[in-house]
């Protein structure tokens, strides 16, 4: 197995594990960006270039910004980014459950009768071929994903937007008015 894969796996797993154990949310988010970039490097190593750049654009570019905005919008104090420590019982129980899952998965993968001989010639998918697949075989799925993304973005705006601002001195209505569109 190549050294590159081991380095990619170590960087990805290490930054993900450290991110999940830190108390500072900003540090966690930045380490998770490193982890997502490591996953993109894995896709590049495996020969799926388009997926690698999609991962870079979506996760390293977009989701990380949304996460950082959420962290900054929901912080408790203005200077201290650390959050309260979690209960020790939860951590121990989570480690037990995760360790048991890891053991089961490792045992299953190692003992599975997978084909040992890897495909010698890596398959390459050109962007042209992918575009034809998207427009031909998977055209319905493409349309559904477009509709899903539109609905999800509208729902996110409605969820995160504030209600109508009432003028001072007027009692707020009993039933919250429907949210208005954010400017």
């Amino acid at each position: 197995m190549s050294i590159a894969f081991l380095i990619i796996a170590l960087v990805t797993l290490g930054s993900a594990a450290v991110a999940m154990s830190l108390r500072n949310l900003i540090h966690s988010a930045l380490l998770l960006i490193a982890s997502w970039a490591g996953i993109a490097a894995f896709y590049l190593w495996a020969g799926a270039e388009f997926v690698a750049f999609a991962q870079l654009l979506v996760y390293v570019g977009a989701v990380s910004m949304v996460v950082l905005f959420a962290v900054l919008l929901t912080r408790q104090s203005r200077v201290d980014m650390a959050i309260a420590p979690d209960a020790l019982r939860r951590i121990v129980a989570a480690l037990l459950a995760g360790g048991a899952t890891l053991g089961v998965l490792f045992g299953a993968v190692v003992s599975a009768p997978l084909p040992i001989a890897a495909s010698a010639t890596p398959v390459t998918v050109s962007v042209r071929q992918m575009g034809q697949e998207l427009m031909g075989t998977h055209a319905a799925a493409l349309l559904i994903v477009g509709a899903l993304l539109t609905v999800a973005l509208l729902g996110a705006i409605i969820l995160a937007s504030t209600g109508r601002e009432d003028p001072p001195g007027v009692a707020p209505p009993a039933v919250a008015p429907p949210t208005r569109k954010t400017s």
Partner: peptide
């Protein structure tokens, strides 16, 4: 281990890191 198995081990380790994080943090 074959390359496929190594990739599967990598992904299951990443899955368990995510699982522990989702269960342990509040």
């Amino acid at each position: 281990l074959s390359p496929l198995q190594l990739c599967l081990l990598f992904s299951s380790a990443l899955f368990c890191v995510g699982l522990i994080g989702a269960l342990a943090r509040s």
